[in-house]
Design a protein around this nucleic acid. Sequence first.
DNA 1: AGCACGCCGACT
DNA 2: GTCGGCGTGCTC
Length: 699
Amino acid sequence: VGELPRRVRVVVEAPQHAAMAVALDYLSDRALPAGTLVRVPLGKREVTGVVWDEEPAGAAARPHTVPTELRPVAQVFDALAPLGAGWRALVSFAAGYYQRTVGELALSVLPPELRRIDGVALARRLARLRARGLADAVAAQPATPDPGAVEQPELDAAQQAALQAIATAAAHQPPAAVLLHGVTGSGKTEVYLRQAARVLAQGRQVLVLVPEINLTPQLEARFAARFPGHRLVAMHSGLTPARRLRHWLLAHLGEADLVLGTRLAVFASLPRLGLIVVDEEHDASYKQQEGARYSARDLAVWRGRAESVPVLLGSATPSLESWQRALEGRYCHVALPGRIGGGALPRVRFVDMNLLPRTRGVTTALAAPLVEAIESRIARGEQSLLLLNRRGYAPVLHCADCGWKSDCPHCSAWRVFHKSDRTLRCHHCGYTQRVPRACPACGNPDIQPLGRGTEKLEEQIAELLPTARVARIDADTARRRGALEASLAAVHAGDVDVLVGTQMIAKGHDFRRITLVAAVNPDTALFASDFRAPERLFALLMQAAGRAGRDAQQAAGSEMWLQTWHPRHALYAALRAHDYEAFAASQLAERRSAGLPPFTHLALLRAEARQAAQAAAFLEAAAQAMAGLDGAEAVTVYPPVPPAVARVANVERLQMLLESPSRRALQRLLTAWREPLTALRAEHRGVLRWAIDVDPLTI
DNA sequence: AGCACGCCGACT
DNA sequence: GTCGGCGTGCTC
């Protein structure tokens, strides 16, 4: 009361190119600790912001003029404890590393509902949450809890050794990140559960990250069933806004003991954090692909280090980045070498497509021996899974008379033929039309589908095995709410003999009756230009193989089939031997000699414009602007190139690669580059959007 | 990014 | 005569 107004610094959501200081100055009649949520006037509107203590890294160089007349803070979210120092440090680091403003990052990782409502509405919701004893906001117990999940199974020797190693790593200061390396069915989840139990017993919170929450209901069920006395909340973008806010608040209040979520959950406010688990750490979903392009896996490791909390990275096929760090001793490598109960890994069999009979130069879609193997599975009441990583009926329609193909008028891509609703659909911009009866170019009624997607494979299987019960799961069949759950339930119930699908079905699901997995056409990924394509293919096939024989009784007879034109390819040889280490060694050798990650560090400057020349001019000017900047001497800049799909929705895209053996030099350069880049925009009006992607997954 | 202000075409 | 198209400019 009667105190003099003082200056507070507040970060608000403002994009990179807004020529504003990183934090804005406001007046407050009382001191506000850093991390306090506030509403502040910004132009004609009022926005939510976070009080920030100091000028974040890299911001000092940005010149800005502070207006003489400061406006007062409109409202303080008194009902909410300020966001902690650990959270602020993580947001600061991520903003600096991924080249975004602190305000943009901080506000984008808070629940959208929290940004929308004011302090009064928030206080009301907090009161309601407390009045209900916090209980019913907790994620509901799964409808069908796995009865075996509640009691603790006996640990085998490898799991006991793993827990011992984790305890040792956790005792380091700061704790060493642990790479928990084990095939599907080796008992990684039980190790997570045991380590979580230790941490919960200390009264601390556990953060579990998963690639996609809707694909891992079992993990949620197992945690919920194992820790009935602890509160578990889910955190992902599929929750309703109100629920997402409730779960976030429960974590922030320290009321939730377990937080299970997708990549955005790495930014959860967790005052008692004691453990971070990153399941399937190699999964590309951990990299955000728009806005702030952060890697939740990398940030989890950073956060664990910063908060002195152990981090468990689990995978059957670790990312080569994590694997290399384990080899260097920077991560503690813990292996779970076999399947629980001594179950065998599926035998890998190849169908050499070169040896198959051809009719009119066209090879049969499914080799006869594979069809027979599926038939015998059906006769035994077992299930088969067919993997084809391409949805739709056919990737393109073609007119043999005039050469017309079903291209998209707005993108440099083919439109995919979807037979189920008779449409041609562009998977990049969504442009959809009814499939034409005749060639739009020459009127020829005989237009042919080229290639094959999951719809066609489903149809072919039904023709080859008329009595088989066939189901298909891909992004199209899973679109309807509840459809995915229903299909999965049918598979679990044994109402399906053959399951056809994209990589969606390769991930996570614990199918008990599948004894045959077949990759119908994996070769397409074998010679893709993307340097990570082999790594992704190997992981996908290993993961798919892991779907077979999860039931130890049936594991001995389980098989993984591959139809390939290149049966002697090194990748397949490693797969046949289930030898991740050999595969990783050969890939790492290639990466080292090619100067690629993890031996170098990359960043992309992406630009979008109506005309490719406008984007190119911007990127070239950006490269010029780099001269003499701190770090430039250690960074190689490559000429701008279009990405795999250059034009999407009539916007031309171009990207410029930066490469350096030194992460620090690359970071220094990117930070110094921000200001000249922002200034360049004024001279390149044609550029619609530009963004820096640090550690891009594809180049 | 929002949200203004600011000048030129088809409607009550 | 207005409603509204999105060009350009500003926000502590």
